[in-house]
Design a protein around this nucleic acid. Sequence first.
DNA 1: CGCTCATTTGAGGAACTTCAAGGTCAGTGG
DNA 2: CCACTGACCTTGAAGTTCCTCAAATGAGCG
Lengths: 238, 238
Amino acid sequence: MANLDFYSTPFVDFNYTKIFGTADTVAHFARVFGEDAPLQGTLSALQRGPVRFYRDNVIALDEDVVDYVMFVVSGVVRSCKICKNGNRSIVSFYLPGDFVGWVDAKLALSIEAATDTELLFIKRIGLVSLAAQNVRVANVLLTATTNELARAQEHVLLMNKSAKCRAATFLSDLWVRLGKAQYLDVPMSHQDIADYLGLTIETLSRSITDLERAGLIARVPSARRLLLQNHFGLRRVN
Amino acid sequence: MANLDFYSTPFVDFNYTKIFGTADTVAHFARVFGEDAPLQGTLSALQRGPVRFYRDNVIALDEDVVDYVMFVVSGVVRSCKICKNGNRSIVSFYLPGDFVGWVDAKLALSIEAATDTELLFIKRIGLVSLAAQNVRVANVLLTATTNELARAQEHVLLMNKSAKCRAATFLSDLWVRLGKAQYLDVPMSHQDIADYLGLTIETLSRSITDLERAGLIARVPSARRLLLQNHFGLRRVN
DNA sequence: CGCTCATTTGAGGAACTTCAAGGTCAGTGG
DNA sequence: CCACTGACCTTGAAGTTCCTCAAATGAGCG
């Protein structure tokens, strides 16, 4: 189960629900890049925010993404694409500590708030030229991109599994990514999850019901708060 | 090795058919990292090869991947995973000029030769520490990783489409990636393509037949050589 | 309470898979 | 030159999984 753990350390280790003030977030963001004072000065000149968005707000659309890279401070961000026939696919969810929009510009994805959220905005060209001069910055970006690539590849693998396995794996991964709390408070809607997993909400709902009947999870008061009763079993669903 | 000549136009601008000796490939690889002589010296100390593999050879498996990063010189490499029930998923194909194995170590993917292929091996820890000191190296890796992430995200999007659309998009992308030659000589087997697209070979075959009946492509003499008669139409299949 | 939105459940249909057979092609040996 | 072989691709018919459409239930909020 080597691949069980690779979500467990989003490269920042703070709990996203606790962070609110501008000072905290900015300090944290800077810390990722090290203690070098001149560098932090340059960085803070490039950044703006945190900016607050409400659920379903569009943060950046297609061309806009070119100008800024974003850093999630709180909440959940989704990057998605709607094709001509109206189907929406969610490519990725971003949690606090994640960079958003570094590559998405190439695919013309829409960046949206999946929950109420706060983001730092960083001028892309500034960050790029900083990375061209400063090894530390380049390596922070490289690490972030490498982690995101690993997640995208897991996502590809997941799409070849059955609906039930997709749901089980998603819930397990989310629980780990959110810090393995007692309950899994699912931050995004079932529709978002379904669009991420390439299922309909009906199939997702039926899959979750199956998992509950199998004793692997329990819907504690409602659908959005889950108890993962048998985490090991969840990872073995197929 | 006459049947190797259809991989001749990778998206890096060297013609692989001209590259055979160690000297040429090493020179090209080094060129990616710039003209700095000491850097190139350090790099060449880290690398080994090119090493030749035959079709279906396993190049690196699970833990092995940790030690080396690879660079494709000729042929096609696949990274894949076989799950307990025996299903194989191909996560990515790598063509000449691509780095392989930078992130795959995290997912315990198996790196295999999809065709006869030649690879450079680069000591991972050496490259990592080089990237920590040298901005140019860090940025080459960042660019490569960013491009691979963009491809992985496209792959995720593709998995939400119909079988016919997946086949059409795959063929179109491959044609572009191989340099838009008159004919598309498909280098990998249908089984490999099916495992990449999350389909069975039967469904893939039926989809290709549908595309042919629609006049979008033609199987010129056999299944492995295609003529893309209506490239624009191919991209509009849904 | 009564509204709205989100989730769940059911029945029928479409898309893809499975299983099984047939066809094509390149290489091999008679 | 031809038949034989094995790997690979194609085609057909039956079976599963998931989707679509429709309705019911549940949760949140004024």
